[in-house]
Design a binder for these strands. Structure first.
Length: 425
RNA sequence: GGAGAGGUGGCAGAGUGGUCGAAUGCGCCUGACUCGAAAUCAGGUGUCCCUUCACAGGGACCGUGGGUUCGAAUCCCACCCUCUCCGCCA
């Protein structure tokens, strides 16, 4: 969330930002509720002050003075109860509105609302020339390494089994990504696959409700995580970190669960959009001064990983309309997926494989994570995240780019030591 | 899952209805002493919110949330977490 003081003082900026991001949030309503809330707060505090004064006088009151003070205290208690209830209601309304306000987009981020508004920054690698392209679902079926039918039978639509060498390839991708991240100075961390709803909303996710993409657990305030960003960000929830420890680079591993409600069709074919996958996630806690450089660093690490895998990709600077509420700026890596739209008879396409975002202090303010400066001052720090590898989409890229005329799959050189084989046939 | 004990400031640890935002010790900061350090002495040392240009003033916080009371760290209830023992188990 944003600092309410910032919203009060820069309502015009906040409104313009909502427009750029194509988000409708009633800032004027928020400001009205905020003013009403402050009025109530002052009233309540005044009543409490009187109450405290009477309690203080009571300490030394003579027996014949006491009844009068007690009566006054009782009256105060009643009016205080009424005002406090009003205040709680006002604060609830206030917070609901405040949490809807998105982070301020970086002025560098391209303004716009459609995919065409995303700015392609650069491309890397050669798009392979493949005759008779097969998509990863077909390849997986033919090689008997990927089974959606049994996944659907046992767990439901969009669940899958990895078999044989593909099961090993997944583990290889995970370990390769971890090793790369560690080599770049990241501390590995295996996190829980569930988190309290408080951590979900603290990171900017919506754990419950109609448009939620999260599997929540019945009768408990915990949910399956959609990304280790949630558990890694939650790690320091409510804590104060010494500045000399920043930046803190963490690489988290977890399984990820997403309901993908309402997502069907071409954009969810095969492994591209599934309910469960594994992900190696980069995360950085940074000081405000460091965060922009750290964002570039995350992008470099991502590119290093995909370059080493020999997968052609392009880098997109994501436009304001697609940023996602917590983020000031976001870069996606899209890999070339030769068979991505093959199911519809099309040719290859770019498909998102990583995403790195700068949250500035948006998550930190919600989660209460702060930095203590050497001079003793305390302020919210910055959080950033980026995908190293999401296995499902990573496997699409490896399988489809590695397909050979004989129907086998060539394994990228960087992965061979991790797989123990150089080909799936 | 069952039984018991406990959750207080950076840490340790007092406090069982008002004099407690909280003793004491350690740690940390500042000053004195010293060539410097140690030791010693003096002072200071939580977070958040509101009002204020500032000085300052006010409010909240003793695991969390309710309740009792004129008044709660202190009493009552629920929940969470930790520890010990038992059970169960990868």
């Amino acid at each position: 969330m944003l600092d309410i003081k910032f919203i009060r003082e820069h309502a015009d900026i906040v409104k313009k930002n909502c427009e750029d991001r194509n988000m409708r949030v009633d800032i004027d309503a928020l400001l009205r509720v905020d003013a009403a809330r402050l009025d109530l707060l002052k009233e309540v505090e005044l009543l409490r002050k009187e109450r405290n004064e009477i309690a203080d006088v009571m300490k030394s009151a003579s027996p014949d003075q006491r009844p009068a003070f007690i009566e006054r205290g009782k009256a105060l208690k009643e009016s205080l109860a009424v005002k406090e209830a009003d205040l709680v209601a006002a604060e609830g309304e206030w917070l609901t509105l405040l949490l809807q306000v998105p982070n301020i987009a970086s002025p560098e981020a391209p303004v716009g609302n459609t995919d065409e508004d995303n700015k392609e920054v650069r491309r890397s690698g050669e798009i392979p020339v493949i005759e008779e392209v097969k998509d990863h679902v077909e390849l997986g079926k033919t090689l008997d390494i990927l089974d959606f039918e049994r996944g659907a039978k046992v767990s439901g639509n969009k669940f899958y089994y990895l078999k044989g060498k593909l099961a090993l390839l997944e583990q290889a991708l995970i370990r390769f990504a971890l090793d790369e991240a560690v080599a770049h100075g990241f501390t590995p961390m295996t996190t829980p696959d569930v988190a309290k709803d408080e951590m979900l909303s603290g990171t900017g996710y919506t754990p419950r409700g109609n448009e939620s993409q999260i599997y929540s657990i019945e009768n408990q305030d915990i949910s399956l995580i959609g990304t280790a960003e949630i558990t890694v960000a939650g790690y320091y929830q409510g804590e104060i970190i010494e500045e000399e420890k920043l930046p803190m680079r963490i690489v988290g591993f977890s399984h990820c669960y997403r309901t993908e409600a309402g997502a069907y069709g071409r954009e969810s074919y095969g492994l591209y959009r599934v309910h469960q996958f594994s992900k190696v996630e980069l995360f950085i806690y940074a000081s405000p001064e460091q965060s922009e450089a750290m964002h570039q660093e995350l992008l470099r690490v991502e590119e290093a990983i995909w370059t080493k895998l020999g997968i052609p990709y392009r880098v997109l600077d994501i436009c304001t309309g697609d940023l996602g509420a917590p983020y000031t700026r976001k870069y996606d890596l899209e890999a070339w997926m030769p068979g991505k739209s093959n199911a519809n008879g099309g040719r290859g396409e770019w498909g998102e494989i990583t995403s790195t975002s700068n949250c500035s202090d948006y998550q930190a303010r919600r989660l209460g994570i702060r930095v203590k400066r050497p001079n003793g001052s305390i302020e919210f720090l910055h959080t950033l995240n980026g995908t190293a590898i999401a296995t499902s989409r990573g496997m699409i890229a490896v399988l489809e780019n590695g397909q050979q005329p004989d129907g086998s799959i060539r394994i990228p050189d960087a992965l061979i030591p991790y797989c123990g084989f150089d080909r799936i046939s």
